[in-house]
Design a binder for these strands. Structure first.
Length: 657
DNA sequence: GCTTAGGATTGG
């Protein structure tokens, strides 16, 4: 955007100390005056505030720019259409729903069909806000610099309040897939799984929102080599994949989307139709059409990563992590064995290692119940991945030898894995953050402090003002200046403790190497790569129960999962082979008490159970138990080269004489 | 180079 707004306000944290710069800014920028929408005069350049009552997401115009359109209103009740033109789609203001608040600078007024309208002119800028009452006033702008001062928050809040009483704003048509019925026009918030160009006027988008449609969904068949994105086989079976056909003027936007992106599709049309090869007595299936044109705000756009719309969608998607279809992991950043093995792999039935070709050539997901024909390790090594097979083998060695080292922290977003830090490391980080104590000044927080004069240090606790008076068991409490032991002691009686430090008076998380949340006997970690890690505008309202997910979301932290990872060297009479054991949701047997010595007890016990099954029990191969194992065989990219991995997906001890 | 779009569906 070509805005010449000189001042960068951005967000409160940009100001090192709060009160004086805010005052100065208001004086400095008093030049901005805002015209009520009923007082616009033609052929002038104005600044306005408004509530969005209708909008069209950006689409390619017949000229050189992308065009988008919004209709706004304000307390004067005048309704004004605004046309926005910008070379790049990404320079258009991000409007995601009716009710959003927008501030426009330097728009020119023009009379069209006896109505006043606003059009972008040189140096225009736009800043938008969520329209939800009581949600934090976070300016969203597509320009790198824009100015926004504290006093303007009030204006946004007033508009929100006023808009809440206007019934026109309440008809948002965004619904989950689970409530969609044939013939409906609706807005869908979803993630793109795969896309394929059908012809010059139609692109297929395979999307999901984690909810299950009540009507059967049509799977549009396309040649595998024309599909970009992951396989949707497992999600198709669960009736989770919506096939969206995008036509005409929307193709350009659709083509710019990448699988994995989150998007909202506006005015999507659910159509019931029979699959071409189905009999007439078969039930009809739903497809979705984004027809050409822009009527009713028809269109689609990606949702920015920091949008408040995303966390609920992501939570819904995480309910289905077991449906990941990838048979290949493309992440070179991980060390040799620390990949993300898939829990289910796609097996080609005609590639049975024993050479017995199956006539069926389709791909199916298969889990082994030790019933498929057994193969030798030598045969496994000669096979072509991906496949699932059943072997009988013995464990020769395993590692890590220190059992608690099996426990890893895993980020499901960037797939990075790291060690759980030991208590010495965490304690040191707590000590460091306590040095040079100064209190945090946050308008949303109430503070209570104590001075430990003997030790010459201060500790503070903060809670959101909204939560003052709530049950202390359910409150979210921020603690500053405490040692690890103190936090652990405190977490016995308080459910959610977030350790924080002060950066020039602004509250911040301490290094994400340390847990960001203590929840009774559990500790939760955030991903250093994927966390926004910001206290700029924490969202504390509208949360009924605080748990690791809601806290992470409010703090902009990408929660890491506990996972178990071990490596075994297997052998039978034909060969040896290294295989991984990998378990999700390892936190269910990872309990951390305040005392380090017993911290890993539960892990020990759980892993011991696994070891009881798999442990080598003697150097002589004849003395060790034989195991029936399911192995998933798949490839991963390792420094650009394909590498075959073997994963133990199931194990059972066999008495073999 | 100074336009483009300017709300109101039935359709692949």
């Amino acid at each position: 955007m070509e805005g010449d707004d000189a001042s960068v306000f951005g967000c409160p944290s940009a100001a090192p100390s709060r009160a004086p710069p805010a005052v100065r800014s208001e004086v400095q920028y008093a030049k901005y005056t805002y015209t009520p929408l009923n007082a616009l005069k033609p052929k002038t350049v104005v600044n306005v505030y408004g509530v969005v009552t209708f909008f069209k997401p950006p689409f390619p115009s017949k000229g050189s720019d992308y065009s988008s359109m919004i209709k706004i209103t304000d307390q004067s009740d005048a309704k004004v259409c605004c046309n926005i033109f910008a070379k790049n789609m990404d320079d258009h203001p991000v409007i995601l729903k009716v009710g959003d608040i927008i501030r426009l600078h330097r728009f020119k007024t023009e009379l069209y069909n006896d109505s006043m309208m606003l059009i972008t002119c040189r140096g225009w800028s736009a800043v938008t806000f969520d329209g939800i009452i009581d949600s934090p006033v976070v300016p969203r702008s597509t320009s790198k610099s824009f100015h926004f001062v504290e006093s303007e928050k009030r204006r946004v809040q007033e508009l929100r309040q006023w808009a809440a009483d206007q019934s026109v704003l309440s008809n948002d048509l965004t619904v989950p897939l689970s409530v969609v019925k044939p013939c409906m026009y609706f807005n869908l918030t979803c993630q793109l799984l795969a896309k394929a160009v059908m012809d010059s006027r139609c692109v297929l988008l395979k999307v999901w929102d984690g909810t299950k449609c009540q009507h059967p969904l049509l799977n549009v068949a396309v040649p595998p080599d024309s599909v970009e994105g992951e396989s949707t086989v497992a999600k198709d079976r669960m009736n989770l994949t919506a096939n969206v056909l995008v036509y005409d003027n929307h193709i350009e936007v659709a083509r710019s989307l990448k699988p994995g992106m989150f998007l909202r599709i506006f005015n999507l049309h659910a159509l019931s139709q029979r699959a071409p090869d189905e009999q007439s007595n078969q039930t009809e299936q739903l497809t979705f059409h984004l027809h050409g044109g822009t009527v009713y705000g028809r269109g689609l756009r990606n949702i920015p990563q920091d949008s408040q719309e995303l966390p609920p969608l992501k939570r819904q998607l995480e309910n289905h992590v077991d449906l990941e279809d990838d048979d290949e992991v493309n992440d070179d950043t991980l060390l040799e064995m620390w990949y993300t093995p898939p829990e289910s792999v796609v097996m080609r039935n005609d590639e049975e290692p024993d050479g017995e070709a199956d006539v069926e050539t389709s791909f199916t997901v298969r889990t082994c119940q030790h019933t498929s024909q057994r193969v030798t390790l030598a045969q496994v090594k000669r096979s072509t991945p991906p496949l699932v097979c059943h072997v009988r083998a013995q464990v020769k060695t395993y590692h890590p030898q220190q059992l608690y080292q099996c426990l890893k922290l895993f980020c499901s977003k960037c797939k990075i894995m790291r060690e759980v830090p030991d208590d010495n490391t965490i304690a040191e980080l707590f000590c460091e953050s306590a040095r040079g104590y100064q209190p945090c000044h946050e308008t949303w927080a109430a503070r209570s402090s104590a001075s430990l004069s003997k030790q010459g240090r201060n500790i503070s606790m903060y809670i959101s003002i909204d939560m003052v008076g709530d049950d202390t068991q359910s409150q979210l409490i921020f603690v500053q200046g405490m040692t690890l032991n103190e936090v652990c002691m405190l977490s016995r009686d308080h459910k959610n403790l977030v350790p924080v430090r002060s950066d020039n008076g602004r509250m911040n998380l301490i290094d994400l190497t340390a847990p960001f949340l203590f929840c009774r006997d559990k500790r939760y970690y955030g991903c250093k790569e994927c966390s926004l890690n910001t206290f700029e505008n924490p969202v504390f309202t509208g949360v009924e129960t605080w748990d690791e997910h809601t806290v992470a979301e409010a703090l902009g932290v990408q929660l890491m999962e506990y996972r178990l990872l071990m490596e075994f060297k297997l052998e039978d009479h034909t060969d040896t082979l290294e295989a991984l054991l990998w378990e999700r949701n390892a936190e269910r047997f990872f309990s951390v008490s305040a005392v380090d010595a017993s911290a890993k007890q539960d892990v020990q016990e759980r892993i011991q159970t696994i070891m009881d099954t798999l442990q080598p029990q003697g150097s002589n191969i004849e003395e060790r138990p034989w195991l029936d194992l399911c192995l998933s065989v798949y490839t991963v990219k390792d420094n650009g080269r394909n590498k075959v991995c073997y994963q133990i997906t199931d194990a059972e001890v066999r008495e073999v004489n």
